[in-house]
Design a binder for these strands. Structure first.
Length: 594
RNA sequence: GGCCGCGUAGUUCAAUGGAUAGAACAAGAGUUUCCUAAACUUUAGAUGCAAGUUCGAUUCUUGCCGUGGCUACCA
């Protein structure tokens, strides 16, 4: 079904040609939804057309409006306010739209695009548990993947695990020294938390050693390098790289603890991956690519033997790619990994869901791949998002000022449980159903909270004011879904829902719902193009809000007229379906009762 | 210093260059013999400053002010 926008655009373009002999391509015609305070459904903005009409805005609008009414059956009436031509569409048009939407289960979802898009997200370090910042990453990554899928792309969700390096060795050293053989089993701790505990312990001991050295007259910079713990850690990394069996065994054991812990957290969040990459497999990649670039003269060597790329022509700096001793740096690995990903999947685009602190890094990565003329270079895109800050400032794992992901989810579930019981909402629920409901509401609130803000922007989380369940929330949206489901169940217990939506007179609120629902595909397409989950979540909330007003003001099962009742139930059901689909794309579940 | 973001009601967030800048929370005033009040109605309240482009600027450009990040041979 052709969208109303393109129909009006085409007709307006034709009007300009016919009336003013002007060539103005259809897609340049600005179409808005008519604001509620005016009469009409869609609005043509006349101002940009004045240079062709050479008449006043009102007069131009009248002429074009008359043309549209004459040539388009679906135009019922029009009016002109200043430079805005408001067009009212016929009842028949909307009835058709409504039936069309109703007939298609997934009417909003795009046709297959033929494009494959890789989305890398999560990408945790294996030295500490996930915190609120990771939560934003995971939830955004999953939501963006869903959004791209809804737009017809094939999506490969990947997770590149940071499982090696000096920071991993820190928790290993600390556990070795002070762990007394503790295991997740012996302590009952989740493995990632146990390992994280030793990462924090390392930092504590390390700082003490630095302080001691400084007290004895060493400069702070020197103290950081000379501290025995640091030397031991560096030695451990060398042993790891040399393949020392003991070190490798310890590494494997502790990483496994972390993976077991992460698996639980991922399951709780409700995210998943199609492919895992491990840095221990990929960290040596890239070196050959750099040497290849060096041979081709794309990179250059400094006197000390280190290899660099000059990106000053692209407005960036010179960047080191290989150290003088020939070892890799971070960006080197990413160059190699990008090659490997492409070799594995031949994707058209590759999204990196990574915090905005790495904006510069990804600019450099893309420029380097472009210089190397990699086929995947153009498709590299950093999906940059802002940090989650606390009222006290930045979260720092080493200093223990983080909001732990597992704790936060558990607290929210507990809060929901308490409130739900207070409200007496779980009568007739089995224990399993109740638990499921608490999880659905808690995770819905959390995800909505994290998704409602435009990704690019930083966000504030105040642990004092726990995440809200009223107003602009996932809970409100879920609540309206549940109310509709209740209505539908009651209706269905007496009569079957027909296939054909009855033709009845519509209330203003019903017209509003129909229009909002019909906008779903356009909203999804825009949100997909802009990679903006916030738009989807906002849409779902606004639809729920419109419905909530409708629910309060218009009786549904209470009306006498059977046709009207059936119509209202079917419209309600369509609203529920739309909320459910929008939320599903975002990775948010919806309860049948709450 | 250089580069990249961000400054909108008391607070947290919206607004492809379009009409009278929207919500939510908090504050004030109301609503329950009726489909789930985790709801609804209602009052008050904002574009950091200064220029420029435009018929029209929260949006684009420039400067200033404020704020965060990057500017590692860490990952």
């Amino acid at each position: 079904m052709t969208s109303i926008e393109s129909i009006i655009q085409a007709a307006t373009s034709k009007a300009l040609k016919t009336l003013f002999d002007a060539d103005f391509s259809a897609n340049q015609v600005t179409i808005n939804d008519t604001r509620k305070e005016f009469e009409g459904d869609v609005t043509v903005v006349i101002f940009p057309l004045l240079r062709f009409t050479k008449k006043k805005p009102e007069e131009s609008g009248e002429m074009i409006g008359a043309f549209l009414k004459e040539h388009l059956e679906i135009v019922e009436h029009f009016n002109v306010v200043k430079g805005f031509l408001n067009i009212g569409l016929t009842k028949a048009y909307w009835q058709n739209v409504l039936q069309d939407i109703y007939d298609k289960d997934q009417f909003a979802f795009g046709q297959p695009s033929g494009q494959t898009i890789m989305v890398e997200y999560s990408s945790p370090n294996t030295n500490k548990p996930l915190h609120l910042g990771h939560l934003r990453n995971n939830i955004l990554g999953f939501a963006v993947s869903g959004l791209l899928e809804a737009n017809g792309h094939k999506v490969i969700k990947t997770n590149l695990i940071n499982d090696r390096g000096i920071h991993i060795c820190k928790s290993m050293i600390a556990w070795q020294k002070w762990g007394n053989g503790e295991t997740p089993e012996s302590t009952g701790m989740k493995g990632d938390h146990l390992v994280g505990k030793y990462y924090v312990e390392f930092d504590k001991q390390y700082k003490a050693q630095i302080q001691e050295l400084v007290d004895n007259g060493t400069t702070e910079a020197e103290a950081k390098k000379q501290a025995p713990l640091m030397l031991e850690t560096q030695e451990m990394l060398r042993q790891w790289e040399a393949g020392n069996e003991e070190v490798r065994a310890l590494w494997q054991k502790m990483n496994q603890w972390v993976y077991d812990g992460f698996a639980i957290t991922y399951k709780n969040i409700g995210v998943s991956f199609d492919q895992m990459y491990y840095e221990s497999d990929t960290y040596l990649l890239g070196k050959e690519v750099v040497l290849e670039g060096l041979n081709k003269g794309i990179f250059f060597k400094k006197e000390d033997g280190s290899v660099w790329v000059d990106l000053t022509d692209r407005g960036l700096d010179e960047k080191i790619l290989l150290r003088a001793d020939g070892t890799s740096v971070y960006i080197t690995q990413d160059i190699g990994t990008a090659d490997k990903k492409y070799a594995d999947h031949k994707m058209d685009r590759s999204l990196y869901v990574v915090g905005n602190e790495q904006d510069y890094h990804f600019k450099v990565l893309k420029e380097i791949c472009l210089k190397l003329e990699r086929p995947h270079a153009e498709g590299i895109q950093h999906f940059s998002y802002g940090m989650v800050d606390l009222p006290s400032g930045k979260m720092k794992s080493r200093e223990g000022t983080v909001v732990d992901a597992d704790d936060l989810m558990a607290e929210m579930i507990a809060t929901v449980k308490q409130r739900t019981e207070e409200l007496g909402k779980i009568e007739g629920f089995t224990d399993e159903e109740a638990e499921e409901l608490f999880r659905t509401i808690a995770l819905g609130a959390l995800k909505f909270f994290l998704l409602r803000i435009e990704p690019r922007k930083g966000m504030l989380f105040n642990p004092e004011e726990s995440i809200d369940f009223h107003g602009y929330t996932g809970t409100f949206t879920q609540f309206n879904y549940a109310r509709i489901r209740s209505i539908v169940r009651k209706f269905e217990s007496k009569a079957a829902i027909p296939n054909q939506i009855p033709t009845v007179d519509w209330e203003a609120l019903e017209m509003d719902l129909i229009q909002t629902v019909s906008r779903f595909p356009r909203m999804l397409a825009d949100a997909g193009e802009q990679l903006n989950p916030a738009a989807v979540v906002d849409y779902a909330y606004n639809l729920a809000k419109s419905y909530s007003k409708y629910y309060a003001e218009v009786p549904i099962l209470g009306v006498q007229d059977e046709n009207v009742k059936t119509f209202r139930v079917m419209l309600s059901s369509l609203v529920a379906r739309t909320i459910q689909q929008a939320f599903a794309i975002m990775g948010i579940n919806v309860p049948e009762r709450m």
